[in-house]
Simulated scan of single mutants.
Amino acid sequence: MVSEILSLRNKIDIIDKNIINLLSKRLNLVSKVGLIKSKYGIPIHVPKREKSIIKSRFLIADKLKISKKLIKDLMSRIMYESYLKEYSHGFKKVNCNIKCIIIISDNNYTGILFKKMLQLSKYNVYLFKPKEINKINIIKYKIDMIIISISNESLKKIMLFILKLSKNCILVNLNVISYKYLKLILYIHKGPVLLLQPKFNSQTYNLTKKKIYYCNGRNFKYYKWFLKQMKIWGLNIICIKNLNFNNDEIFINFLKIFINFLYGLNKIKKKNKSNNPLLFNNFNLKDTILFFKNNPNFYIDNIIFNKKNIILFIESYCNKFKKFIYSIKNNQKIFLKKFNKINKLFL
């Protein structure tokens, strides 16, 4: 019996070796695809191609009676590694007339991430903190674009610098998208203005399929090349025309801030770092750690610039929470009925 198992295991080992060799060959082919994409400015992520791959692999899996979930998980991981392989070749530079890009970033990773992506696209990029604003004078080139990833508090410190910018200089703001914030930026800078709001973890490496919202501020034709550049990186770019678009999302962001902050306060009170494995399963500690590594003024901005919406939503949701708790305590049938009704939406 033992010899039979060993014989089968040896065969499995050979198959595993073949799988790894095939993966290596696939990644080599992907690398060649990446070179072509880099040369001609083809986006890293092509949704139709990805859907086609998954669909065709499912058909093969059905014939072989293999779990679709296994194939989906396997192909997702393979494609993720493939995108990383394509990243290694860099990206086509969309606008060769841009000689100098300045990024002013608080203590956060978004500015660093954009610096890396722009450098992979062969742009001259310089990164400064708000307190280093005087060092910008040493740059020999004319500033064609400035990206600010800072809080409203830091914005006040560099206000004079922005006011002195050329009217041809593109100002890109990486913060919260709101009417109040847009009005402020347009008042400070009279040239082209673009507002961006990333919807991805700032410590991510692979931007493929990650979402980023943008709002046209002024002179779209001057910065449309940058939107194209981000699309080449694989970002899913979503235009926001109505600045009241994201009321639900604003509230969800507020809840994330609220929950992470309360969790931190709770940890201070307990004065311990729990290693309870159940806690790790039920609460994403990695997100909480990242939350406290960012500049807290960003969270203040998120609340202040959407103050009215958040207050309205808090009142609305507080009433819903009260009804929810009441139904759990006093009338579980109502809870179950509503639960099943909501569940149908996700089927």
Rank of each mutant, 00 (worst) to 15 (best):
S154R: 00
L8D: 09
N152M: 04
I328S: 04
R26V: 15
N244A: 14
S274P: 03
N319T: 03
I334S: 09
F339R: 05
K32N: 15
K269A: 11
L182S: 05
N253S: 15
N247H: 13
Q203F: 13
E249A: 14
K273L: 15
P130Q: 01
V30L: 08
I14F: 08
F313Y: 07
K333L: 11
F305C: 04
Y141F: 08
K157R: 09
K183L: 14
I15V: 13
K48V: 06
N343H: 08
N330R: 03
I232C: 02
I303F: 07
I147R: 04
D62P: 00
V46Q: 10
I66T: 04
I44V: 02
P47L: 07
I14L: 11
N272C: 14
N253L: 12
I188F: 03
S76D: 12
I150S: 00
N331F: 02
K256Q: 15
K333Q: 11
N330Q: 03
F339A: 09
D73W: 01
L113I: 06
R9T: 07
K135H: 05
N294P: 01
S151H: 04
E153I: 10
I112E: 11
N275K: 13
L74F: 12
N219D: 13
F200L: 03
N107S: 13
M79S: 13
T110H: 01
C215A: 15
S7E: 09
F245W: 13
G111I: 03
N276P: 00
S7F: 10
N152C: 09
N306H: 05
Y222S: 15
S76M: 09
L196I: 07
I103N: 02
N108V: 12
L155D: 00
L35R: 04
K329S: 07
K93R: 08
I252M: 12
C239E: 11
Y109W: 06
E50M: 08
I78K: 05
N302F: 12
P130R: 03
M117P: 04
S166E: 14
L22D: 10
L113T: 04
I148L: 10
F254R: 02
Y80D: 12
L120I: 02
K308W: 02
I147D: 00
L255P: 01
P296F: 06
S121Q: 00
K183Q: 12
I98H: 00
L74K: 04
S166N: 14
I12M: 12
E153C: 04
N294E: 13
S67V: 03
L127E: 05
I188G: 05
G34K: 02
I268N: 08
K323C: 08
S38A: 12
L8C: 05
K17Y: 10
K228G: 02
K341N: 15
K116S: 10
M230F: 03
N18T: 03
K72N: 09
K63R: 07
I15R: 07
Y187T: 07
K293R: 13
L84F: 03
E153V: 07
I19V: 14
L120N: 04
K228A: 00
M117I: 04
S327G: 02
L118Y: 00
N124Q: 08
N206F: 02
D16A: 11
Y83P: 01
K307D: 06
L262T: 08
N295E: 12
K221I: 15
L265R: 13
S316A: 05
I138Q: 09
K307M: 10
N295D: 12
L195M: 11
F324N: 01
K323F: 02
